[in-house]
Simulated scan of single mutants.
Amino acid sequence: MTSTADPAARYFDAITSALNGLDIFMRDERSPLYRHDLVAKVLSEYVVRLENSFACWRNRLGFMDSFRISRAESGFPVFQNVLELENDKRHADKRLSAIPEPADLRAEMADFILRQRAMPDALRKSMAERLYLEEVAAGLVFAPFVLPKTIRVAVNPKTKRPLYVVHWGAFDGSANLPIVYMATVEDSSDSMVNALVTKDGKLDATVDIPLPVEGLLNPDLAHRFDDFAEKNSVYSLSPATIAGNLDKDFDTLHPKQLRRIVLGPFYSTGITEHNSTVADVLSRVRRAENAWLLTWTVQEVYSKAEQPAKRGLFSSQPAREEFHINTDDLEAARTGVSHYEKHALIPHEAYQVLYAAGEAQKIFSGYQVHIISNGQVISDV
């Protein structure tokens, strides 16, 4: 049976173990994500942000009494925690200036203990707050919105247009889920075509592009693209809708592929309540740090054709994309995607308990299951 220790400690132990397992999964050459090295590389950046966020939240409990998670839905922290972390990061330096240095605090604590024969709770909380703010100020955290970044540039030999791979992140405030977006976008802007494409339709090797570039590579559209990404990253919008909005809002940007990775739900015994069967079985796992299950979904929509621009005397129509929706699959049609994958990551001990209980096949129906065992990944079970 799992430990009856402090629920917050159990939760943080479990989510830390899950994120460590996801990191192992992404780096394992046998895992599906490793075969898409760019996807794994991008996702790992956001996993680091999540790891840093959870480390900060754990330290925050040293001087704050509560921490709320979405127990009945995502299993991740509620959005208010994300907003507070972002606000604390913004004001960390100012707050740190009002708290004594660690060495001074330790000296005061030692003096208090010697004189009062009691624990200096106020000083202990000040120390905890200082350590929290130092970590918040130093590390990348998963913000409500993580600005776009261009990580790859090429040229489509058919269209002779520059092609960018851009990613950004969002923590959805309604679903309480961390989401990662990746888009492959062609740019027909005259300025970028002239700057990046040679006469023979190749990327100009003489142009220095210091990747990664903060924001969209096209400087004329970068701020607009940031605004678009922030407004169109909510979980309730389908990938097809987001790609279609991008196509309509930017006449010279042509989205060829949009990938969305939704992390969660996360299940932890004695904490989350969104699946009674999973909760019941996980409660039988002996070691609390192995009593968890992390799921995620990869959704993708891609362009199957481009309608060429139409130019006339009285009206014109820019080039528009035709996105493929897989209507042969009910789930793909419902969610507005060309393709999707559902993944589940679980420790070996927990999987053994699920399997022994006869629940594994039902719980993991439709999922690609990945088992963490002795620091390695076992997939396709």
Rank of each mutant, 00 (worst) to 15 (best):
1 M>D: 12
3 S>H: 10
11 Y>G: 06
18 A>T: 02
24 I>W: 08
27 R>T: 09
28 D>M: 07
28 D>G: 09
37 D>F: 14
38 L>T: 06
42 V>C: 00
51 E>R: 09
51 E>F: 01
51 E>L: 05
52 N>L: 01
54 F>M: 01
58 R>M: 11
60 R>V: 01
60 R>E: 15
66 S>H: 12
66 S>N: 12
70 S>A: 15
72 A>Q: 10
73 E>D: 15
77 P>L: 03
81 N>D: 11
82 V>T: 05
83 L>Y: 08
84 E>C: 04
85 L>C: 00
89 K>L: 07
93 D>V: 05
97 S>M: 13
105 L>P: 00
110 A>L: 13
113 I>K: 12
122 A>F: 11
124 R>Y: 07
128 A>P: 04
130 R>F: 04
133 L>S: 00
137 A>E: 07
147 L>F: 11
149 K>N: 10
150 T>A: 00
151 I>K: 02
154 A>E: 14
162 P>Q: 09
162 P>W: 07
167 H>D: 15
178 P>F: 05
182 M>A: 12
188 S>M: 02
191 S>K: 00
196 L>A: 00
200 D>A: 04
203 L>Y: 09
207 V>F: 00
208 D>L: 02
209 I>N: 06
216 L>V: 05
218 N>C: 02
220 D>C: 05
222 A>S: 15
223 H>A: 14
232 N>K: 02
235 Y>W: 14
237 L>K: 14
238 S>H: 10
241 T>V: 08
247 D>L: 02
248 K>G: 08
249 D>T: 04
251 D>K: 03
252 T>E: 15
256 K>N: 14
262 V>S: 10
266 F>S: 00
270 G>S: 09
272 T>A: 00
273 E>A: 12
274 H>C: 03
275 N>W: 03
277 T>G: 13
277 T>I: 11
281 V>D: 10
284 R>W: 06
285 V>E: 01
288 A>F: 01
289 E>F: 04
289 E>M: 08
293 L>P: 00
299 Q>R: 06
299 Q>M: 13
300 E>L: 04
302 Y>H: 11
303 S>G: 08
305 A>K: 06
305 A>E: 09
308 P>T: 06
313 L>P: 13
316 S>V: 03
325 I>Q: 06
326 N>R: 08
330 L>V: 13
332 A>E: 01
334 R>W: 11
336 G>R: 02
338 S>N: 05
342 K>E: 10
350 A>L: 03
351 Y>I: 01
352 Q>V: 06
352 Q>K: 09
353 V>M: 12
356 A>W: 09
359 E>G: 10
360 A>L: 00
360 A>N: 05
361 Q>C: 01
361 Q>W: 11
362 K>R: 15
362 K>G: 10
363 I>Y: 10
365 S>D: 15
372 I>Q: 14
379 S>R: 02
